[in-house]
Each structure stands twice: as structure tokens, then as C-alpha cells.
Design a protein around this nucleic acid. Structure first.
Lengths: 147, 147
DNA sequence: CAAAAGAGTTAGCCTCGACTAACATTTGTA
DNA sequence: TACAAATGTTAGTCGAGGCTAACTCTTTTG
């Protein structure tokens, strides 16, 4: 493929994962992801978003045409789905423990970038098992009353 | 207390937590924490360590005398113990799930900075409950064989 | 006890990922 | 259709937290 620049990309950072996650979510819910939407969603400036989007384009994670819009590439969508999966899993797991919604959101937002594939699988299995143990879960939630 | 400068400190970053955690660990195991030891432990340069230590001193988290050595202040030690507790808890929890040691280390190192007090408490309770459920744990570990 | 080795420090630089201000383009509406 | 509003882009800056090179101080050792 002669036209493709390799673009020696840096390792995927937490920031990149955050962008991809929001972009996928916007596309899923609104059908598209504009710079202004991404900026609002991440609570950062539009300029920062433009900047990052150009970088993600250079790294082959999305296709971007100035003033026109963006689409995730296969690589970008795969990453986006992956981080979304981690986010959902952690949210489900912490919810099971009876934690406050705000706390869950905060902690998941931080932790989701640092959880390995095998840990994801283990937590999935644990979550599935715990769902069958209401008595155990009740005891866990009990001990956390003061929240 | 007239001699104390407030030093309008920034919020505690992951980097600061990492430094404090290592410093406390070095003090506990070797009795002291030199610049060179901290640098080796964190795998960063001595210059970076000197720099950060001066900042932690300015922020009142430790007492530092150039060329002489450092001691954690009460505030610094409290933070150090706190992050250490989170580290230990996450390690215990993930160990229970039968994950590989290296994966545990990696994930804990990332996640420990993002876990709220109430999540700590919930995970403590969960860990305690799980220890009484060998059959459940066996099923979780089973599903993760390929690791 | 001098000098080499080791430890610590300073100065200057770099990247990442934010920001604002100013400017460009596109879109919506009178 | 013209122009105002909305959206997008560029240029320049900043702070966090790394780095190396060069220097200083302390400790060890012949």
C-alpha cells in the first residue's frame, strides 16, 4: 500500500483512549462526532480537540477532513470498542458493590486505562459469579453503609 | 506558626503518590531513602528525583536538606500510608482472582491512583467475603486459564 | 590525607496535552 | 443572497514531569 504513511505512532495514551471512547459514544448516540461535541463531552477546548484529532488521523486511528468531519478507522474503532468494554465492565462491577454513582464514574474514568486483558477476563468472570450471590453482595454493601 | 509557608500546593498527582509510596517503602526496608535509591526504584534519573523532592519539601510533604537526606512529614507519611494501603488492597484482590504476578503489578501500579475511599472499603469487604468462598474463586480462576 | 568514586545538584531542554486569542470556514436566517 | 452565528483551525504559550550534561559535595580508599 504505497500511499500509506506509517507515522511511527506513540504508545496509546490515556488521553487517546478518552478521545476514542467519546468519539465512538457520540457516533453511536448522535450518528456523528463533531469537534464541538467532543470538546463539550470531554470538557476541554475545541482547539485541543482539533489538535488531537489531527494527530489521531496521522496515526491512522481515524480519517479526518478539515472542516468536514471524521470517521473512525478499523484500528480506531477496535481501540474504541476495547476501552468502552473496559469502562462498561468496571462500571458493572463497581455497581454490584453498591457504590455511589458519582464515585463509580470517577473511579472507572481513572482505572479503565490501566486494566490488562487478563484482568478484564477475570473481572468478567467474577462479576458473573457475584450476580449469583445476592447474600454475599448484601454483606459487602452492608459494610459500606456510611458510603 | 509564623515560619511555615503555605506553598499553595497543587492537587496530589499520580507522580507524587508514586514518589511518596517508594520513599515510605525504602524507609521501611532500608531505614532511609536516598536520591539514588528512589531513582533506581522508580527507574528515572537522579536529577528528576532531586527536582521532585525539592517540590515535595516545598509542599510540606517531606523535610529535605540538600546533600543530607529527607524525612517524611506527618502529612507526607499519611499520604504515603494511604497509597500503600490502596496498593496492597488491590494486590490482594487481584491475587485472589488468580492473575499473573506481573499483570497484577502492572495493573495495580496504574489503578491505585484512581480508587476512592469508598471503593477501597467496598473492595476490602469483597475481598474478605471472597476469601470464604473457595468454590466461587475456583470458578473465577478456571475461566481465566489461558491467562 | 589526597584523590577517585559515588551521590546530589543545577541548568537547560523535551514531549504531552492542555489553554487563549485571532483567524477561517460553514451554516442558518432575515 | 448577504451577513451573523456557529463551528473549526492556527499560532503561540504553559505546566507537569521527564531527560542529559556539567558541575558540586560527600564518602571511600590507597
Amino acid at each position: 500500500m504505497p500511499g500509506k504513511k506509517a507515522a511511527t505512532s506513540r504508545p496509546i495514551s490515556s488521553a487517546v483512549e478518552d478521545y476514542l471512547e467519546r468519539i465512538l459514544d457520540l457516533i453511536n448516540t448522535k450518528g456523528y462526532a463533531r469537534v464541538v461535541d467532543i470538546a463539550q463531552s470531554l470538557e476541554i477546548s475545541q482547539a485541543s480537540v482539533t489538535n488531537m484529532i489531527q494527530r489521531l488521523d496521522a496515526e491512522g486511528l481515524l480519517k479526518y477532513e478539515k472542516y468536514r468531519g471524521l470517521v473512525l478507522t478499523t484500528a480506531g474503532e477496535t481501540l474504541a470498542r476495547n476501552i468502552t468494554e473496559r469502562h462498561q465492565l468496571l462500571t458493572d462491577f463497581l455497581s454490584l458493590l453498591g457504590l455511589d454513582e458519582q464515585v463509580i464514574y470517577h473511579d472507572v474514568e481513572g482505572m479503565e486505562h490501566h486494566i490488562s486483558p487478563s484482568t478484564v477476563r477475570a473481572l468478567e468472570a467474577l462479576t458473573a459469579q457475584l450476580q449469583r450471590q445476592p447474600a454475599l453482595l448484601a454483606r459487602v454493601r452492608e459494610s459500606n453503609h456510611a458510603n
